[in-house]
């Protein structure tokens, strides 16, 4: 009896202490995130500044019509989701691959050098990256075309070749985020107890087997979490990538136009109600996706589920 009482007292104390630790974050979230969330009702209103948020008239689902009844709804959705899925897969594979390889590098100096160089793109804004891609792809003076000509080929007008752009965008995006991705996985790899590797080596496992059986499983939780979180943004795209890099060239829209760029172009007048509606819709879809995927993860790998 006494023992049980002690345990429950301890557990209350423990829970209270832990709760206190989370308080600063909870308060911050409540004030800065949850209170403004009420403003999301703009999505259902015909918002006019002089009337304010509360004073503006309700207009139901009118704002959502802009997106759904547009001729391009299918195309931009397909592009947005398509790229999002491809990025999830590519980022995962590339990030893990590079992290694993990095882990093999012995020289501390070399490691520093490689990691620093991989992080360089992070310092460049999409606008600057846009200059770099333009230097490569410019039809007249671009480096790609110069090389092609050197080999006797016909220069390509990249900015009207729609089919080239999925590749261009995927490669550019990977180039920009690989540093970040791989460093995250690398940090996870660093948490592995060296003893495991030593034991495995003694048992005769080669490096490859060690990677498969030790490294990978250790970073599995992180892989799952990052992928899961990425699903939350499946209806969103990186505006900078899709707007700046293709230079908003109309001809390329079939391959480069996503929800975010479409809305931006259409709403330069700033109809806030519609912008809010689209944003809300994007969030909703992402939410449903994560909850669904999380449910699946919970069945297969319960420890890694988000909640």
């Amino acid at each position: 009896m006494k023992k049980m009482k002690k345990t429950s007292k301890n557990s209350t104390k423990k829970n209270l202490e832990l709760l206190v630790l989370t308080l600063p974050a909870i308060i911050a979230y409540f004030i800065f995130n949850y209170i403004p969330m009420f403003g999301a009702i703009i999505a259902f209103k015909d918002y006019k500044a002089p009337k304010g948020i509360l004073g503006s008239a309700w207009n139901g689902l009118e704002n959502f019509k802009f997106f759904f009844t547009s001729q391009d709804a299918w195309r931009i959705t397909r592009n947005t989701v398509g790229y999002a899925l491809i990025f999830i897969v590519v980022n995962l594979v590339a990030g893990v691959f590079v992290a694993l390889l990095l882990y093999e590098v012995r020289s501390r100096r070399a490691l520093k050098f490689y990691q620093t160089s991989m992080m360089l793109p992070r310092f460049l804004s999409w606008v600057i990256v846009g200059y770099i891609t333009y230097t490569l792809l410019s039809p007249t003076m671009g480096i790609f075309n110069q090389v092609i000509e050197m080999f006797g080929g016909q220069p390509v007008n990249w900015y009207s070749e729609v089919s080239a752009w999925p590749w261009i965008l995927i490669i550019t995006n990977t180039w920009k985020v690989i540093g970040l991705n791989s460093i995250m996985y690398y940090a996870a790899l660093m948490g592995i107890d060296k003893a495991y590797f030593e034991a495995a080596e003694i048992d005769g496992a080669n490096r490859f087997q060690q990677i498969i059986h030790i490294s990978l499983p250790s970073i599995k939780p992180l892989m799952i979490v990052l992928t899961l979180l990425a699903f939350g943004n499946i209806f969103r795209g990186d505006f900078g990538l899709f707007y700046v890099i293709p230079r908003d060239v109309g001809v390329l829209y079939p391959a480069t136009d996503i929800i975010d760029t479409y809305v931006y172009r259409g709403l330069r007048t700033g109809n806030l109600g519609i912008t809010a509606a689209v944003g809300l819709f994007q969030s909703l879809v992402g939410f449903v996706m994560i909850v669904t995927m999380n449910g699946i993860v919970r069945k297969v790998e319960p420890d890694s589920a988000l909640f």
Binding site: N33, P36, M37, G39, A40, I42, S283, F287
Partner: peptide, 15 residues
């Protein structure tokens, strides 16, 4: 909060 937020105007008004 990762997915849902109030948007620019409500956040601005609050802050």
């Amino acid at each position: 909060t990762m997915l849902f937020n109030g948007g620019l105007i409500p956040t601005y008004l609050l802050n």
